[in-house]
Structures are given as structure tokens and as C-alpha cells.
Design a protein around this nucleic acid. Sequence first.
DNA 1: CCGAACTACTAGAGCGCTCTAGTCCTGCCA
DNA 2: TGGCAGGACTAGAGCGCTCTAGTAGTTCGG
Lengths: 327, 327
Amino acid sequence: MEDVAAKAGVSRALVSIVYRDAPGASDTTRARVLEAAAELDYRPDHRARLLGRQRTKLLGVVYGVRHAFHGDLVEALYAAADLAGYDVALSAVAPTRDEPRAIQALLDYRCEGLILLGPDQRAKALAELAAAMPTVVVARKVTADGVDVVRSDDSDGLRQAVEHLVSLGHRRIVHVDGGRAPGAAERRVGYKTAMRRAGMSEHIWVVGGGLTEDDGVAAAKRILREAPRTTAVAAFNDKCAIGMLDTLRKAGRDVPGEMSVVGYDDSNLAGLSHVDLTTIGQDPKRLAELAVGRAVARLDGDVFADDELVVPPSLVVRGTTAAPKEA
Amino acid sequence: MEDVAAKAGVSRALVSIVYRDAPGASDTTRARVLEAAAELDYRPDHRARLLGRQRTKLLGVVYGVRHAFHGDLVEALYAAADLAGYDVALSAVAPTRDEPRAIQALLDYRCEGLILLGPDQRAKALAELAAAMPTVVVARKVTADGVDVVRSDDSDGLRQAVEHLVSLGHRRIVHVDGGRAPGAAERRVGYKTAMRRAGMSEHIWVVGGGLTEDDGVAAAKRILREAPRTTAVAAFNDKCAIGMLDTLRKAGRDVPGEMSVVGYDDSNLAGLSHVDLTTIGQDPKRLAELAVGRAVARLDGDVFADDELVVPPSLVVRGTTAAPKEA
DNA sequence: CCGAACTACTAGAGCGCTCTAGTCCTGCCA
DNA sequence: TGGCAGGACTAGAGCGCTCTAGTAGTTCGG
């Protein structure tokens, strides 16, 4: 900076003014400074810049590299933060890097707000974080003091899945759940409620599943073995549904002819032509906007009573659902 | 920091010493400082800490959120960087955030070295970056001044795939390629060379493919239509192979009975029990270690003549390859 | 009993920026 | 012509650390 100032024949302060687009520099000087900077290829040091200020305009995002849906969210978060004039600092959770560590790394960089995608942390730990800075949990339902939650209405998602299947004429509808995964409990509730409302309480059956294709494989085998008359399945997520799909077809069951399958997430996978999975779409763009919006609002000093923002999911009908054979 | 120093009854410098684990503080004082810090829940400001130093101990990583293999690499990079005593700053490429922008963000944070996963940038742009700081390109073959390249030996990977198929008795082996994707050219070469060496030049056929499942679907349809006597396919990557797998099976072709399929990457997908894909494994751990190692060595002032580190891939035999029916 | 060597600690400059409080013009109105 | 508003620019402190140089105090060999 010193060098640029010298080269342009001005003071350091003036260079600062130019780079901040602040008033107080003539157009000619501005140009001269910029030119000098270009020659020395100078770029202001982001960190030093932030040091002197109170605000860092930095939002920390913790996510799992492995998680496809997190990828979609991260993309949307970049866009949303950009619009709000904030930067995003990414911190991934990996086998050698647990969640507390990922969060600490972000705190060390003095981000102003935290956005956690489907965190494992206990409510108490989250509340502690929230006491220090705006903290938004995305895609997981938690109740923790001061923590904002932005999530899809998972219960409603499963209601939509069940109602879609019911409207096609299905009665023996099974739910393969996600165990203790974020959102799994709500989806179970949504399934059961919808089944009850449709007057099919006696057909309620929740099969233990999980988040991966392999969980879907296991669940499908169990269903074929224990309840071969089942005509429809609502899976916990797309991956699980895809595992089921393959297993059912390998076992000679036609999908959707003999068995309908509904996924959840509307991930890239679901839209692929050879998969063509009917699923429940979450809206990553909307979730990201709300998460960023809430964090920024908190930083601006707004106080909110409601600490939960729920986004309705939407049914995406594709080729894995149809009327049951002997409806 | 001031407050902590005051509370512990020492100078700021002493607090600094304690936090740097530097010699020059008695154990009792050390404990007293730490205690005071804990009460005020003080954490040193990472950025300020780095400001004064020349070294930031920060490695910038640019990657694509969407890319599953990048996820594996990122995980491994965290681990490798950690071991080398470096921090990792992640910058994702997304639809609203192109590669130059992702790189600039990293430069603003004054990282000392750049690790780019399968970048799109032209060789010239990469060389410019390398002129400013150690730059390592992973998983793409480029020749650019000063740029280190760490990649799998893609040519050898396809050789292994072909030789595996040949050893099973296949002759009509097709390669579905990756178009202009990083690594695609090398894989084509590896395929052709291996076919020629095996004396099957007349069966060489490269079908235009791509990176996604849908590309695999299209390629499989084309193969079924144009060369139904084909008995084996080596695909550009696992996703493409999976798209083919589904299409072939839907068309009534038994895999591996009537058609063998080999993927590439050994991604999570390949190992799933319902996929069980024979594939060529890249070694993300090794690639990450080499990338970090090279960047760090450059930072330590080492000079290298060879600017390309090639890691041999390895064949992972699973359930989608077998001897051809009428061998 | 002096000074060298070491330990425990502190003062203060410096990292690269921003920001406040000026200074010095120029132009314009009374 | 004096006064003053406002534009263009600068000096210098301050952000939260690290680091160099230096000050006490203690130990110890000769």
C-alpha cells in the first residue's frame, strides 16, 4: 500500500479511500492510484482491512462435504450472502475434522454469524454458540435458546408423499425412515398422521432405514420378505429410495407397475433420466435465503420471537409412482 | 487480550507467549493466564495473529461443491494440511461464483499456496497465478510454467481396465469417454494403446460420453443400437458407468453375464452393494498428500524440475465384470 | 564477590489497513 | 475583500496480535 501511495504520489490514506470507493478523491487521482496499483499488482489485504473495523461481514458455514444436499445449500448460500453484502467462510466436517473443530476454525476467523447445516451438536452446545453470535441451524429441528432454525416442513413433505400415493389408489404404504438423522422424526410423524387421516391406520408401518443406498437395499429386502403385498413406499431420502429401486427391480418387481416409490430431497440423482424418481423437493435457494436473511437481521440488531422458519416442500411427480396394479 | 493480561496481572506480551506456547513463561503464570482467559472466554484473533507475520500458514483450496470426487479430496486435504501444520481455506466454485472469483477470494485472505481441483482456467492464467505463489493443480493435466500438477495416471488406469477385461476373455471392448473433461484425453490414449498392445486394434471404438449418469444412458443406448455384439465397456467415470448399467439392464442385458462394465474413480457410489461396480480407484489420500507436500515444499523454498507428480491408480474388481458369455 | 548465564517478564514498534481530525486550497456570496 | 462552505488530501492513532530488545532477579562458577 505504501508503495502504491508513493508511486501515485499520494498518501496511504488516499489509497485507502480509493479502494473503499469512499468520497474524497478526485477522479483523476483515483485513476492514477488504480493504475499504480495495477502495475504493482497490489490487492488490499482482506484481513487487515477487517481488523480495524468492528464488522467483518463474514458468515461462517459449517457443512458436510459428503452430503449432496449440503452442496446445493452451499451454492445457494454463496448467492444469498453475496446479495446481502456478506462473505462466506466455508468449514467442512470430515472424518479427521469434527464439528466442534470446524466451528472453532470459523470463530478464529471472527465471522459474525454462523450457519450450520444439519449439525450434530447438542442443543446446549448450540445455545452456547448462539449466546456469542447469531447462529442459524439449517435442515434440523432443534430447540435451543437463541438459535434460529430454518428447515423444510418435513412432516408436511411426508404428508404430501402419502396423499399422492393415496390419490393414486394405494393403501399399503410403508415408510422407510432415517433413524436418528435430522428430520427423520418429523417425517415419521408426517407419515403416520397422513395415514391416519386417510383412514389407513392399520397399514401404518415404519421400517428402519437410513440415509444411504445400502440402507434402502436392506429395507427393500425386508419389505419383500415381510410384507410382499406392500404397493408403495415413501423413503427417507432419494439415496435410500434409489437403493430400494434397484433392489426391487432386481427382485423382479416392476416399478412403478407393482410398486411405487417416493424419495425425498429432489437431489440431482432423482432427476436423472434413468432414475426418474418421484420425490419431495426441498427448496435450497429459499432455505439459504432465509438462513442468511435471519443471520443478517440478527446482526442488524433485530430481535425475533419466533426462532423457527419453516419452508414448505413440494411434490415432484416423476416416473416411479403409478396406480397400484389391482387397485 | 488487554483484559486477560490485566486480569492475570501480567503484560499483553506474556499472554501472547502463553498462547503461542513460546518459552519464557513459568508454569504457574501460564496457568493463571489460561484461567483468566477462560473466564473472559477469550480466543486470540486468528487474523490479527497472522497480520504481523510474514507466513499465514494458509493453503487455499478451490473445488466444485457438486463434484463428489472433490469432496473426497477436500477431506484428504484437510488431513494432509493439518499434518503439515497448515490451515485450509475452502472456496467453492458454484453457478453464481466462477473460478476466477473463487480464486480471488482466496488471494484476499493471503493464503500462501493454492490448490486447485480440476480447474477450468487456461494454462496462461494458471502460470500467472504460479508466478505469484505456489500453485498446485490436482486431477488435471496441464503444462503451465511454475504450476505443479498432481494427478492420477489416467492413461494407466484405462490400461488396467482394458487388461482386466482382456484377461477375462473380452475382445469387443468399447470406451465411453469424457469429452473435454480433465483426464478424458489421457484415458482415451490409455484405452487405445492397451487395445493395440492386445492386438485388438480393429475393435477400438471410442463412444462420446460425459461425466454424468445421463451421458452413460445415452452412450449405452447408442452401443446397443450400433454395436450390439459389444461385450465390455470401460466408462469415463463411475457415474457414467452407473447410467450405462441401468440402461443395459433395463434393455434386458445381463451385467456382467452378457456385458461387463468398468467405471473410474472408485467413488462412494461404486462400492454400494446394489451397484457393486468394478472400477479404477484413484487415491485421493495420496493425491492430497502430494499436493500439500509440494505446495509446502515450494513455500520452504525448494525448487523442482519435474512439475508433474503422477499417482498410479488401481483396479478394484467388483461384480460388474466377468468372462463374456461365448468367449 | 563479581559478572556471566539463564529465567521470567515488559515496553514498544510494527503488520496493513481504516478512520477521525485535521490542513490547505478554490470558489462564491455578502 | 473577508468569510466560509466544501472538495481534495494528509497525519497519525488504533485494530489485536507478534516480536525484538531490554530489564530485573536468581543462580553459579571462579
